[in-house]
């Protein structure tokens, strides 16, 4: 018997190209959709809160979706309450999001706030869903430096994906045209962020200067000509290979790089 597929819902947003700033599908959200497609196939639901007229939304449909729901909102509206209302009784078992939006504030708070309001657990940096059994999912979480951690979490849960998730498939033009966008009119709540904050074009960050706090000329000379020196390292001379290996092994174990 074919197991019942997981009820997966992906939250998507409209991204901006890093160089040109042109609207596109958001990189991490597309990865979330890719993960959803691998988990649930065609049954994956995709949801966007924002402007349904935006052409870039069709890029998600081009990944092989037949439809996409949009909660119609103007720019600058708060997406959180409408998403909460929708998810509350959507019956979704797994909600996937990107880590942060590419436009607007991009604080990455949305999955956390949704999880807090829904009372669901949140898995940050989902890389892979290994198996789902009896309402418990075993997943892999992506850690920095290419490491993975295995977690067990009860359904339903929220998960954000980052760049460790599988790369999104290409968007095809034909399916993108053929797919349907379902629009829901929702109650609009304004976000109060812009009442006291302002956006500016990103300034290049000042490069940190190497400050040399030398009092005398000799110290300055020393600082300018010093080689990279750890100093004070322990040197083991005239020891047997076993003793040397033991010392190295002890350090590796202390640093926790040996598992």
């Amino acid at each position: 018997m074919q197991p019942k597929p997981l009820n997966v819902l992906c939250l998507v947003s409209i991204g901006a190209h890093p160089t040109s700033g042109r609207a596109r599908r958001a990189e991490q959200d597309a990865r979330a959709v890719e993960l959803g497609l691998r988990l649930a196939g065609e049954q994956v639901q995709v949801l966007h809160a924002g402007n349904a007229e935006e052409e870039a939304l069709r890029a998600y449909l081009g990944m092989g979706l037949s439809e996409l729901s949009v909660l119609q909102q103007p720019d600058g509206a708060d997406a959180l309450p409408v998403l909460f209302d929708y998810l509350k009784d959507s019956g979704a078992q797994l909600v996937l999001t990107g880590s942060q939006a590419e436009t607007g504030e991009g604080s990455g708070m949305l999955p956390y706030l949704l999880a807090e309001q829904l009372g669901w657990p949140l898995v940050v940096g989902l890389a892979e869903v290994e198996k789902v059994e009896n309402g418990v999912a075993q997943v892999l979480q992506a850690l920095p430096r290419g490491q993975r951690r295995r977690l067990q979490v009860r359904l339903p849960f929220l998960a954000s994906v980052d760049n460790a998730a599988p790369v999104a498939r290409q968007s095809a033009f034909g399916p993108a045209r053929r797919g349907t966008l379902w629009t829901d009119e929702v109650h609009v709540l304004d976000d109060d962020l812009l009442s006291n904050a302002s956006f500016q074009p990103a300034r290049p960050r000042p490069k940190r200067l190497k400050v040399i706090k030398a009092k005398t000329g000799a110290e300055r000379m020393k600082a300018a000509t010093a080689k990279a020196a750890g100093g004070g390292g322990q040197v083991l001379k005239d020891v047997s290979a076993q003793e040397g290996a033991e010392a190295i092994f002890k350090l590796l174990l202390e640093e926790g790089v040996i598992r």
Binding site: K227, A228, A229, G230, G231, G233, Q234, V235, L236, K237, D238, V239, A241, Q242, G244, A245, E246, A247, I248, F249, L251, I258
Partner: peptide, 24 residues
């Protein structure tokens, strides 16, 4: 490299690597 290192072992690398494999 010894000046930079936090721990240095002076000796034949092959013997030390073999001992390290054994220890592991």
């Amino acid at each position: 490299m010894i000046k930079r290192a936090d721990l240095s072992v002076i000796g034949d690398s092959a013997a030390i690597l073999a001992a390290l494999i054994e220890r592991m």
